[in-house]
Amino acid sequence: MSIEGPRERKYIYEIHFLRAFACLAVVCVHVSATNYGMNSQTWNEFTYFLNQYGRFGTPIFAVISGFLLFFQVRNKGFHLGYFLKSRLTKIVIPFLIWSIAYRYILYYYDHQAFGDVQAEVVKILKGNSFYHLYFVVIVIQFYFLFPFLQKLFRTQTLMMIFTFLSLWISYQLYGFQSNINGPVGDFLSSKSFMPVWIFYFAFGGFLAYFWDEIVSFAVKRPWKMFTIAMLISLGAIVEYKVNGYVSNRRLTNLANIPLLCIAVIGMYPFLSRWNVLNKSLMIIGKYSMGIYLIHPMILYLFARHLPQNYWSVYYVPLMFILVILIAVVFIRIIQFLPFSQFVIPVPKMRKRQSMTQKEIHTNKIAV
């Protein structure tokens, strides 16, 4: 199956748009959490909303990870050597580099002494070098399963079976606590245990195998998609108002995330009409992995160097924008350095304008 023409453009732009949404949501969580910490662990109504609403971001990143892997297999097949090399250079090596960087910054600023080599290696492997790296460990665990999964589930019917099976697994593992003592038991009960997240990766595969049908349905109904997104948002507000603090592993996300992903995809053609908004979101989507890796360090340094008066709730929107801008500028600078792809992976994007010109030229010939 080819990925030429419209299908490729849909994949590039709508997935980058979904990436941008997930990235902004994650940054909302960490900006608000840092503000909370800098205000004697006190929430403001606004920061609490940002923190709780942003909990959609991490599961959506899992969906995107599953989508990209299964979409590649669907269109180009699976080559184990390429897969291993790609994942090593784009994910594993950057993860190790940033794990070491965050471990050093904690040593430098917080005087957290280094333990023995085994303890430090275990900390890295569990994603405990800093609070956001656990998710990369989840993704890497999925990589170990993926060569087998892609061989088992290669049709739309089989992908539907995998999705429903994964939904059952994630549902059953909600709130799972292992009875095993020691490091293994701690890992099985931790938020880094991938099977708890398996449904989101599987739904990404579902999107990949039903991409044309889903996009065709969603983009024709932008206002309905907007309504779905608003209803999910209102539901999230009611949930944390009633139940209190909720995490990104909350049970309702098993329904919220698939609906929200489809809604965001459906809204893309409508929102992309605003050129400035479209370009900004495409940049954020393109740099989302780098922003994810870098932004906690920016916030960490802000917390240690900015005067206390800058941690007023009134500065939260400005703080949010600054974190994104600094991260984007830093990524752009890093890209000029040799071997930058091992530090911050940036996916390639085809320029939309050049594709449009090609279409115009083709249409002229046809006429």
Score class of each variant (00 low, 15 high):
I97V: 15
P222I: 05
G185W: 01
V137D: 09
F146Y: 12
T42W: 10
A208H: 10
L173P: 12
S65F: 15
K123P: 04
T157N: 14
L207Q: 11
F217H: 02
F320P: 10
A208K: 11
F342D: 01
A303Q: 05
E359T: 09
V196F: 06
Y143I: 14
N275L: 08
N256E: 07
F201W: 11
Y200P: 03
I284Y: 00
F201Q: 11
S354Y: 06
R154V: 07
F146N: 02
L207P: 13
A33K: 11
E239N: 13
I64K: 02
V122N: 09
I169G: 11
D186S: 12
A62D: 10
L133K: 13
R350Y: 03
L24K: 01
Q308M: 08
M194F: 08
F114Y: 14
S99A: 11
Q41K: 14
F201M: 11
A22I: 03
Q41Y: 14
G57D: 13
L271S: 02
M1T: 12
S189K: 03
K224W: 10
P258I: 07
E4R: 14
P222V: 05
K151V: 06
I257G: 11
A22S: 09
I324Q: 00
V246Q: 09
K348W: 01
H111P: 00
I257A: 09
D116Q: 09
F135P: 03
P269E: 01
V219D: 01
I91T: 13
I257Y: 14
F320C: 08
M282H: 00
V92M: 07
F148L: 14
Y171F: 13
K126G: 00
F142E: 04
L68M: 13
F226G: 01
S288G: 09
S280Y: 01
R304F: 12
M160I: 13
I169L: 13
A236P: 02
T58Y: 06
N309C: 08
G266W: 10
N363S: 14
N181R: 08
P183R: 01
T227S: 13
W223M: 12
M225H: 01
N275C: 01
I124V: 15
A255F: 15
E359K: 11
V137Y: 09
G77W: 06
Q72R: 12
L337I: 15
